[in-house]
Design a protein around this nucleic acid. Structure first.
Lengths: 194, 194, 194, 194
DNA sequence: TGCTAACCGAGACGGTACGTCGCGTCTTGTT
DNA sequence: AACAAGACGCGACGTACCGTCTCGGTTAGCA
């Protein structure tokens, strides 16, 4: 039976140093080379201090990601769903291109083999999906979307291409990418009727 | 100066044993636990025989994937683009659910930190994108698609959601998923005009 | 720049287990089969723990030998040089026949290709030579030896035959061997004058 | 059941190349680094050609040593045993300092763990001992040696110091070393009576 | 003179051990 | 008691040689 550490005695300094070191390393040398040993060395911290508070390196990066997420704004609601989606996805694009992008990429990888990472990633992802779904729901009520649209699926149609491009094809997202995607998503690929 | 071995003297038996062992292990214990050591043991082969012909375990699995790909049929062309896309994406769904799905998942992960894997994955992915783009191009010429549609982007709109669902949200793809996605992709999310 | 570990944090338990395992293995399966891997397995220790403190298996066995040497008594000095030499060489005979003999044999081998082993073996050998030389020097002063005898050479005449017999000819040392050798060494091979 | 190769079809060229390569390597990089692969590469020969005719690298070097031995002169017999021993041991000193010395050193090592090498070394060693014993026997009959001297032991007293110095203490044998040794061996360490 | 069996070079093969890296745990003072 | 430091048992890494095996290509002897 493992001992639970006392959060009150926790060193905030060490916590910050670890989170920063992990994030910096992930951005500089990539997720695979961001080992617990390297984080500890860079943070000037004992390995035990990491393992005491986080179950794995993915958990550290996850906390970093969650904090970044918390500070980010809510899903915008100007009344214009396409404008709001464009604003939101543009923010996501910016995140992908930033240091946090490297971390998020690492977490998505870790989630494939690490259950804890998978849970955290799922939570973040579901939160994002839920936020988007809510906004889409409002739009649907307002008649901006087809009434029979499956909104969870709609979210995947909107964000799927972006992930496909950035994560799988490993390409920088070009300017106007999401604008174009949203055009298709809303207007469809069918030839316009006139 | 490193020597590369003579492919003529290569043992086809060992090759097959290695590819099979790697694929089986990946399906049974996952990509992370599919170590070169385990592959060698399972294939009844020396580790050196693996390293002689492949630079990493990802390269082994990549070859397995490439072979699977080669044997798969071309993109269908019945003249009905939506039916063809549905057939093709259904085949992809089946692949994702099969043993090859576990391997492909592992390769997509490996590609994030292993340049060789990244090159191989890119090649497979670009091949798939090109095939789809060609079929879409025919459809576009035939007036089945908007003339101004960016086809590379269209491919991402079609496959992106599937990957988002299967890989990132780690959910089994439900029946009719791609049918629904294709409905949106072609008809758009906008309310229908009567 | 390589880091050397902190001896204060060293596990005495692991140290003893390694030294014992190495000695036992050397006695049981011989020096060649006494691999670092086998020592680690037998000692219930990680290979790294061996490599952390010793540069090679020879160094481990060397330490074992040095410890055995430290606990052994000094060169005897009863005033009778021939009796003292007989006592000392008899002790060496016993060592050769014991487990330590197998280890010492292995070290003499290793010293031929491993510089670290060579240094250690040299040190042990020179210590033994020096001890013997000192005792012989006393005897020389007391008139028990020719005044012009080269004592370092005398030591080799005394111990050389023993090593020749045991190590090179690989024969068990028969009873009374050294007594006979000492007879010749002191009285010479020349016919006795009456 | 293993096939015996036909000695008539043996390539003398390969034989010589292997023997030379092995000897050169042993002299240049030492016995430990003289691997079968290195010998084969240097001799421009397949590994199988070595294994077909010799059971191990030690056997190759043994053959080299045996050939060197055959060409060497017999034990000299001028009627003066001390002069003859000095001549013979001087020749041995020269051998130790030559390339053959490195090989012989390697064989003495190999003999400790390789039964085939041990047999070969034993044979060479016993041959040398027998030769020396015979010469000593003649001297004993002639009254040059004490009648009760054990001649096998006498051989070890003569050669033991030389091996101790060269092999174990790994020191070059200084000029006049054996002359001095022989003085002690014949005259003894006892103070001279006057 | 053409056949065929054996040796040849080359080097791939199944293995064993190497020495290193990072894991996650445990231990030792310090603060 | 949490901390930094880092030693520990462990498992996999990628490499070096081992001794065996399989390939063509020469190279004898026998037909």
């Amino acid at each position: 039976m493992s001992r639970q550490p006392d959060p009150n005695r926790r060193s905030e300094q060490a916590r910050q140093a670890i989170l920063s070191a992990a994030a910096d390393l992930c951005a500089e040398v990539g997720f695979a080379a961001t080992t617990v040993e390297a984080i500890a060395a860079r943070a000037g911290v004992g390995k035990q201090t990491i393992y005491r508070w986080w179950p794995s390196k993915a958990a550290v990066l996850l906390e970093h990601m969650q904090r970044a997420r918390e500070t980010s704004a809510d899903f915008p609601d100007t009344g214009d769903i396409r404008a709001d989606l464009l604003a939101q996805t543009t923010a996501v694009e910016a995140l992908f291109a930033s240091h946090s992008g490297a971390i998020w990429r690492g977490l998505l990888i870790a989630a494939q083999s690490d259950d804890i990472a998978a849970d955290g990633v799922r939570a973040l992802l579901e939160k994002a999906v839920t936020d988007a779904t809510k906004r889409l729901s409002t739009a649907q009520v307002n008649g901006e979307l087809r009434a029979d649209a499956d909104l969870d699926m709609a979210v995947e149609i909107i964000y799927g291409p972006l992930y496909h491009h950035w994560l799988l094809r490993a390409r920088p997202v070009p300017n106007g990418y999401m604008k174009e995607i949203l055009n298709v998503v809303f207007d469809g690929l069918n030839p316009r009727r006139h």
